[in-house]
């Protein structure tokens, strides 16, 4: 296996790993807050569930980027391309935006959504505002995903 393939695989792993950690932390935090509300008022389950789902998207973005890298380097088809070190570094670099931004934005979005759970708990009618505030963080994860995707599809093999 060439150095290039190993570097590309590290890139694919990082995208799923870091973005996944960010999402797991974020979803976990909102889940804690949500379970606190549901233990008092179970009727608010559906409202807090939306907030809990929001930080989960970073993990999906990381997964998508990883799949794309694996597809491009031929690992998924069983025919791994013979990549140069420079090409491998290209895939590794392409994975970094979603890996790093996914990790940080997942955690931060989790905090914002967990704070939003308090809004839902006290004023259920204002749940939409809590969702909007948490969704604002999502913008940066989407931008990072776009950059990663553009880089992945444009690394020449």
């Amino acid at each position: 296996m060439s150095n290039g393939i190993i570097l590309a695989l590290i890139g694919a792993a990082l995208a799923s790993l870091l973005a996944g950690i960010g999402s797991a932390k974020g979803v976990g935090l909102v889940g804690e807050a949500a379970s606190g509300v549901v233990s008092v008022d179970p009727s608010k389950f559906s409202k807090v569930l939306i907030l809990e789902l929001l930080p989960g998207t970073q993990g999906l973005y990381g997964f998508l980027s990883s799949l794309l890298i694996l597809n491009r380097i031929g690992i998924l088809g069983g025919n791994a391309a013979d990549l140069t070190t420079a090409q491998g570094l290209g895939f590794l670099a392409a994975s970094l935006p979603i890996a790093v931004v996914g990790l940080i934005s997942g955690i931060i979005q989790g905090r914002t959504a967990a704070a939003g759970v308090s809004i839902t708990a006290k004023k259920p009618d204002h749940n939409g505002k809590a969702i909007i505030m948490a969704a604002m963080v999502e913008t940066y994860a989407i931008l990072a995903l776009l950059v990663s995707l553009l880089m992945i599809v444009n690394v020449s093999i």
Binding site: L29, E32, A33, A34, G36, V37, V117
Partner: peptide, 8 residues
């Protein structure tokens, strides 16, 4: 987080 949300 859980305690604060529950008390809210």
């Amino acid at each position: 987080a859980k305690a604060v949300a529950a008390l809210r």
